[in-house]
Amino acid sequence: MRPNRFRLPRFLRNHKAAAGALILLFFLVFAVIGPWIAPYSPDQTGTAIVVGPSSAHWFGTDQLGRDIYSQLLVGTRGVVVVGFLAGAIATVLSMLIGIASGYLPGRGGESLSVLSNVFLVLPALPLLIIITSTQQSNGWVVILVIGLTSWAWNARLMRAQTLSLRRRDYIEAARATGESTSRIIVFEILPNLTALIASGFIGTVVFTVLTEITLAFVGISVSEWNWGTVLYWAQSQDALAQNAWWWFVPAGLAIALLGTGLALLNFGIDEFVNPRLRSSGPARIKTATGRRVRMRIGFTPVTGAPGELVPALAQDPEGETL
């Protein structure tokens, strides 16, 4: 009997997924507690103007003496909330449109597919900039507009997957037994799209976060703090010419770290679903005679002397002996 100890869920035992989840958790925690633990108000001006990191101001100050560390902490909430809400809107839209266009026969499905291709091809950023700068932009408008313009990529993936599912035997069987279309979609197709939906959601969040930060960086919706706002001030106040690296380096690193965390989580999902993508073990293995053999999919090299065969197949990728 194995000792009954705590074990991580199987998905998180993948190192990439675990690292990604940890990074995401880190930012979620700061999104909740950020405004409380910020040492200053992000708008509080001071006398120390554009000074580097010190014990009083960990990440230095900006052109009005405001504390950049506090701006980043407060901004985390804005980034996370807008990113995830817009991501959720986009994911729901992509599910509706993607599955419908994959499952519905004929004209209806085709026209939905054309719609998502149109949204995919249109350059989103200029469109977003025009819409958000002409409307009286508050946070909700930005969330809605980002959500409404970033669903197309996933819808395309879902459509492709639904198309390949709809002629499978078990779907045909469900149809033959007279199940309603909605029941087939919800109980037969949807469960098989779970991984795609999850990884699509994470990918969309990366995109929406970047979009939101970009909009703030070009000067739209600068009233609410997020990491892009910090970069906007750094750019417009010539932080580069003043050598004020502390002004833009931490914000960029935060964006990159959050993005990497989400990407790692996505790799985890991909590898969880498609074991071929796992890169486990070295590609070259030394045989007993000293020859080097390169592992290749499709071949099963025999890598030991006949008596001491330890084929790689006897272990499953999680490291447990079968």
């Binding site: 960086f217 750094a234 914000a251 960029g252 990159a256 990407a263």
Partner: peptide
């Protein structure tokens, strides 16, 4: 060549792809 040195590029690649263009430009 899975498992060769190029696999080491993967984490770096995912890090680079999540950096906003403009920030890389600033750096």
């Amino acid at each position: 060549r899975r498992g060769a040195w190029t696999d080491g590029l993967l984490p770096a690649a995912s890090f680079l792809s999540s950096i906003p263009y403009f920030w890389l430009g600033l750096i």
